[in-house]
Simulated scan of single mutants.
Amino acid sequence: MEFHDTAAGRRIAYEYTPGTGPTVVFLGGYKSDMQGTKAVHLEDWAQETGRAFLRFDYSGHGDSGGKFEDGCIGDWAEDAQSVIEAVTEGPVLLVGSSMGGWIALLMTQRLADVAGLVTIAGAPDFTEDGFWADFDAEQRKAIMQDGQVALPSDYGDPYIVTRRLIEDGRKHLVLRDPLELPFPVRLLQGTADTAVHPDRALKLLDHAASPDMRLVLVDGADHRFSDADCLALIESSVEEVLARAEVPD
């Protein structure tokens, strides 16, 4: 494990596998870390195939510095951009899981050379269209007055949603304005996902503009999207995007 210090002073833990480009970059989800099943599976695949690969923890996640409750979409996007630009060279293929799908979409607007994109239960704009939209009047009042509210989670401890997370999220929404994705895109989504409804993937498919974009719905798959079949689909989707992106000069 290595560490990268961002310009904002946040210490980011990462694992980098050298190999041929484009570099595959895994962007994890909200409260997830780079030790998750999907990230480790892709690293194993990269090592077996000789592909350059990067996984990392946002600040407040995993082995990176900072407190989770202090973070927001803008901070985590800055973390992602900083470590990707510092560690990788040349084009990158972004693989974004859940919140990482939103961060990956932000990276397509900031990085110099994006070869392709794969999202797994991508959750663009979830702070506004998920958290805030689902809050009742009491929760909205609590988050504005107290600065945070706790939400139950099916994946461990309750989610602490802060006022800063909501307000900062509004500065980084990607489904309100035109979204150009001029490279191959694969959207993967489980139909039994209770954390990110399949409608989110359909909305992204309808909203974004790409010359080569496909949505794959997996019947019965949940938000983890980590059983053997789902992992194989992630792997084959990455390989397909790489094949379509690597056009000879």
Rank of each mutant, 00 (worst) to 15 (best):
F3Q: 14
F3G: 01
H4F: 15
A7T: 14
A8W: 05
R10G: 03
Y14V: 03
Y16F: 15
V24W: 03
V25G: 01
L27D: 01
G29Y: 04
G29N: 09
G29E: 06
D33E: 09
Q35L: 13
Q35W: 13
D44G: 07
D44Q: 14
F56N: 02
F56G: 02
D57Q: 07
Y58V: 06
S59K: 01
G60T: 03
G65D: 04
G66W: 04
K67D: 14
G71A: 11
G71H: 01
C72W: 06
I73R: 01
D75N: 13
A77K: 04
E78G: 14
D79M: 10
D79R: 08
A80V: 09
A80E: 05
S82H: 13
V83R: 01
E85R: 09
E85C: 05
E85M: 03
E85A: 11
A86R: 13
A86T: 11
P91E: 13
P91F: 09
L93S: 04
L94M: 07
V95I: 11
V95H: 03
V95S: 03
S97Q: 09
S98Q: 07
G100R: 02
G101E: 05
I103V: 15
A104C: 07
L106T: 05
T108Y: 06
A112V: 11
D113P: 00
V118T: 03
I120S: 02
A123M: 09
A123T: 07
D129T: 15
D129S: 15
D134S: 12
A137D: 15
E138K: 12
E138V: 10
E138Y: 06
Q139R: 13
R140F: 02
I143L: 02
D146V: 06
G147S: 03
Q148V: 00
Q148S: 14
Q148M: 12
D154W: 04
G156D: 08
D157G: 11
P158R: 08
I160F: 08
V161I: 15
E167P: 00
E167Y: 05
R170W: 09
L173H: 04
R176S: 14
D177P: 00
P178Q: 12
P178D: 15
E180A: 15
P182Q: 04
F183V: 09
P184V: 08
V185T: 05
L188I: 04
A192E: 11
D193S: 03
T194F: 00
T194M: 04
A195Q: 13
A195G: 00
V196N: 00
H197A: 07
D199M: 10
A201L: 07
L205M: 14
A209F: 12
A209K: 15
S210I: 09
P211C: 08
P211G: 11
D212N: 13
R214N: 14
R214D: 12
V216N: 08
V216A: 07
L217G: 04
V218I: 11
A221Y: 00
R224M: 10
F225G: 00
S226L: 02
D227P: 04
D227R: 08
D229K: 12
D229W: 05
C230A: 12
A232I: 02
I234S: 01
E235M: 00
S237C: 05
E239N: 08
E240Q: 14
V247E: 11
P248T: 12
P248C: 00
D249R: 11
